[in-house]
């Protein structure tokens, strides 16, 4: 039997080991990214909440993501240079790409390379979780600050699986709620485990998590038509708001990592997508994407807004995606080229 002293020494050793790991994680953040040693450090520290919703803090930085003076990702805008604004969510923000490889930044390089001069700049007005509705509310402010000539709208249909109620009360402005204390080592351990655990085990764990998150709610196999209609209506309002400000809207169809036939790894990927939206069954996602893109095309035809059909142009090769819908550097480059193809004639016309 271990003595009390041995137990105490063992506990102390565990405490020192764990505490040191946490300290090294903070030191690592400090050295690598200039992060504060103490206090909370996560992606949400980039934002505050105003009357409309989340907005970036000017010049804030989290790891590889840096915001400009307007609170949007990327460098500061240059006055007088024609600007294209990109609306979207995490795919547009560039969740997975290396810094400078997110598609809005690559689009800027592509446009300028084709123009043979620094003729254009692209404002990345997206953040993870942004909906078409909040983007619409931001239009007057962006129009006043950046005076964009055109706006690319890369809507995310998945945000309409469980949309907030239309009469939801606004969240009061202020700082985004953060825990008082967080262990940074925990996030690293989670990422490490993700890389170590076989995909089949991860899928099983996700399935259990989905079941727990869903609770008593029923999971539907097909997204109700009302949700698609709401997506279409919100896009329509965004187009109207942009036109009112004299900005040319351009719609872009949404693209995901799935081809015509699904492999086992595709099914695992669908489960990981569903983890964020437990009330829609896996097969419902592909159907939702198809119907939402049809809605985008029909809206474009109806309103005379040009549509860049990224869904048709983008190969669904695994190398182009890091998960179900987020782009790799290579994928973002294809997106940028496709968008530049569609956008340049419009910009030239403007």
């Amino acid at each position: 039997m271990p003595t009390r002293t041995q137990i105490a020494r063992g506990l102390l050793a565990v405490l020192i080991f764990g505490g040191s790991l946490e300290l090294f994680a903070r030191l690592d953040d400090y050295i690598s990214y200039g992060a504060p040693m103490w206090g909370v450090y996560n992606a949400e520290t980039l934002y505050v909440r105003d009357a409309i919703g989340k907005r970036g803090i000017p010049h804030a930085r989290f790891r590889k993501w840096g915001l400009n003076a307007l609170g949007y990702r990327g460098p500061d805008l240059i006055a007088g240079r024609p600007t294209v604004v990109c609306f979207g969510a995490s795919e547009t923000f560039g969740q997975q790409e290396r810094e400078g490889s997110e598609y809005p930044r690559q689009l800027e390089q592509e446009l300028n390379a084709r123009a043979g001069a620094q003729a254009y700049q692209v404002l990345n007005a997206a953040y993870a979780g942004q909906t078409v509705r909040t983007a619409t509310l931001r239009v007057p402010e962006i129009a006043a600050m950046a005076r964009p000539a055109a706006a690319l709208i890369y809507g995310v249909p998945a945000s309409y699986i469980e949309p907030p109620p239309l009469d939801a009360p606004p969240v009061p402005p202020g700082r985004i709620e953060q825990p008082r204390f967080e262990l940074r080592i925990v996030d690293r351990v989670r990422t490490l485990l993700k890389g170590m655990i076989p995909s089949s085990v991860q899928t099983w764990l996700r399935t259990r998590e989905i079941r727990a998150d869903r609770g008593a709610a029923t999971a539907v196999a097909r997204l109700p038509e009302a949700n698609i209609q709401r997506y279409r209506d919100d896009l329509s309002k965004l187009i109207a708001a942009l036109r009112q400000e004299g900005i040319t809207p351009v719609l872009v169809t949404h693209v995901d990592a799935f081809g015509e036939t699904l492999s086992d790894s595709d099914r695992a990927l669908l489960t990981s997508w569903r983890k964020f939206y437990p009330t829609l069954q896996e097969e419902g996602f592909l159907d939702m994407e198809r119907r939402a893109n049809d809605a985008v095309r029909s809206l474009g035809a109806e309103t005379g807004v040009p549509v860049i059909d990224l869904e048709k142009a983008m190969p669904t090769a695994p190398a182009n995606f890091t998960d179900f819908a987020h782009f790799s550097d290579a994928g973002a480059a294809i997106v940028a080229k496709t968008l530049a193809d569609g956008l340049l004639p419009i910009l030239n016309r403007e």
Partner: peptide, 14 residues
């Protein structure tokens, strides 16, 4: 000493 040793182990592990 033990605390410094375990801090070193943690550094190497990290």
């Amino acid at each position: 000493p033990m605390p410094a040793r375990f801090a070193c182990y943690a550094a190497i592990f990290y």
